[in-house]
């Protein structure tokens, strides 16, 4: 596998949300508005790239027996740093994402990539993998959040698209609506990728 294909696989073929279905809890919770989806995606991507890089660099040093604790310490460190930085420089986003920023620690995608990929692959591949999976994750979250914001508030990125007379489909702003929207989008993505052979 080339570096390029390690990068591109994360966008559709191994898309974290629609294919691997990893880390769904924060996805359902924060995707009420497009900007939160984008913010969560970028925060997760930042952690993913850093943890992939560090774990790949240290893959020969970390003893196999304690690799999971080591991964968790590394991931938790980056997450806490992102949490503090968001709180200091992007307080509005931090207030909205709330508990879900610290919870990136237990996001399956990050530990999953560390265990399944970064701990076995060279640095360049791990970086490409982190970037690709992260980008796919961010795109999926933004897409899901845009759909939900459009239905539940008539806008995307707070830009009103459906006019003032639109009566919001409020269920899509609530947790049950998150499940509905995710399920319907997943069906659509599967249908389209089968049709256009994006496997």
């Amino acid at each position: 596998m080339s570096v390029m294909s390690e990068f591109s696989k994360g966008i559709i073929k191994e898309n974290a949300v629609f294919r691997l279905m990893l880390g769904l809890c924060p996805i359902l919770a924060v995707t009420t508005m497009a900007e939160f989806g984008l913010g969560m995606g970028i925060a997760t991507t930042a952690v993913l790239i850093c943890s992939n890089l560090v774990i790949s660099l240290m893959r020969r040093i970390i003893p196999t027996k304690v690799r999971i604790p080591s991964f968790i310490i590394i991931i938790a460190t980056f997450v806490t740093m992102v949490d503090m930085l968001l709180n200091a420089y992007l307080p509005a986003l931090h207030a909205q994402l709330g508990i879900f920023v610290p919870l990136i620690v237990v996001n399956c995608i990050i530990l999953g990539r560390a265990e399944a990929f970064a701990s076995k692959a060279p640095v360049s591949h791990s970086l490409a993998d982190g970037l690709g999976i992260g980008l796919g994750f961010t795109l999926s979250l933004t897409l899901l959040a845009s759909v939900r914001e459009l239905l539940a508030a008539g806008s995307i990125f707070k830009i009103n698209l459906l006019g003032a007379a639109y009566e919001p489909f409020m269920v899509f702003g609530s947790p049950p609506g998150a499940f509905l929207a995710l399920g319907l989008l997943m069906a659509l993505v599967n249908m389209l990728s089968k049709k256009y052979k994006l496997e």
Partner: peptide
């Protein structure tokens, strides 16, 4: 094993302390 784990923790703690100091 112990030493490696300890070193990882030490580096992590230092990184966190610095970020906290800044923010």
């Amino acid at each position: 094993t112990g030493i490696v784990l300890m070193l990882i923790c030490a580096v992590a703690a230092a990184a966190l302390a610095y970020t906290n100091h800044v923010t």
